[in-house]
């Protein structure tokens, strides 16, 4: 299991947090996700054989948010 922290911009309320956690936690290879509204981040534990930080970033973008991987 690996962990990645994705910067998420455009979240403004708790329902954004719940939407992202709800959708991303169902993606293949995702073990857990914790989204912080205060920090504008999503911390994801994932199986690197099934998904990647880039795939997860795109999935968050698809939901209408700005998602950026750390350098």
């Amino acid at each position: 299991t690996q962990e990645t922290v994705i910067n998420i911009n455009g979240m403004t309320c708790n329902s954004c947090v719940q939407s992202i956690e709800g959708v991303i936690s169902k993606k293949p290879g995702v073990k857990s996700i914790h989204v912080s509204l205060a920090n504008s981040t999503g911390t994801v534990e994932y199986d690197p054989l099934l998904t990647s930080p880039e795939t997860l970033r795109e999935a968050i973008e698809d939901m209408g948010f700005d998602a950026v991987l750390p350098d």
Partner: peptide, 18 residues
């Protein structure tokens, strides 16, 4: 659509514009 604030509406706008 269950939107609570401007930010939620913004997310909806973005997916529609995409």
């Amino acid at each position: 659509v269950d939107m609570n604030c401007e930010g939620c509406a913004e997310a909806v706008s973005r997916v529609l514009n995409k």
